[in-house]
């Protein structure tokens, strides 16, 4: 995630501590898309991602480590978990993207073919092999993510507007109906 947004890669291997969410603008077919990429902040380690984490997601990126077979094995349960928690309107068509990360490392445990097969059984999820460390394929992968999220919106026009007039708390926020200030 950091490689993608900041073009930096942190060598320290401290799981994902410190990662929160990052914002990035990408060009997809003449459109500028602002992506917010949310990290699990380590809360997934003991299956403790709360339902609040999944709210309003337009795309889900699953990442496994091509040198660690157990990370590949748990993809199914993560996909299921997402669909249960996020409960999207059309679970079958919800956009997922799969990234096989750390392709710069040896020995490789999960072959490209094996990963692609898994993707085929899940309604053809796009698959990318990446190296966050060497910035390999990261840009392409996130473009695909943006495109998929957009297609989801195109299909359900009111997706974005399911809950209009939500308020983000900021110091400067004013209601649309201002003029209604203090009664005195």
């Amino acid at each position: 995630m950091n490689q993608y947004v900041n073009k930096k890669f942190s060598n320290q291997y401290k799981a994902t501590i410190g990662a929160d969410f990052l914002t990035k603008e990408v060009q997809v077919d003449d459109r500028t898309v602002t992506m917010q990429i949310w990290d699990t902040a380590g809360q997934e380690r003991f299956q403790s991602l709360g339902v609040a984490f999944y709210r309003g997601a337009d795309c889900c990126v699953l990442v496994f480590d091509v040198t660690a077979p157990n990370t590949f094995k748990s993809l199914d349960s993560w996909r299921d978990e997402f669909l249960i928690q996020a409960s999207p309107r059309e679970p079958e068509n919800f956009p997922f993207v799969l990234l096989g990360n750390k392709v710069d490392l040896e020995p490789r445990a999960i072959s490209t073919k094996k990963a692609q097969q898994w993707c085929q059984t899940k309604n053809n999820i796009p698959y990318f092999e990446t190296s966050a460390k060497e910035a390999l394929n990261v840009e392409q992968a996130f473009k695909s993510i943006a495109r998929n999220a957009l297609s989801q919106q195109a299909q359900a026009v009111d997706l974005y507007n399911e809950f209009p007039d939500q308020i983000k708390l900021t110091n400067t926020a004013k209601s649309n109906n201002s003029g209604d200030s203090c009664a005195c």
Binding site: D20, A41, G50, A52, Q166, L169, K174, S175
Partner: peptide, 29 residues
């Protein structure tokens, strides 16, 4: 009054149960 909307009151989307999760998220980060 007059800060966010027509009344002085706010409710958290998806229920009050979301409130503690927001603090937990910061703790995790």
């Amino acid at each position: 009054l007059g800060r966010f909307g027509k009344t002085p009151f706010l409710y958290s989307m998806y229920g009050s149960g979301e409130l503690s999760q927001a603090f937990c998220r910061l703790s995790a980060v």
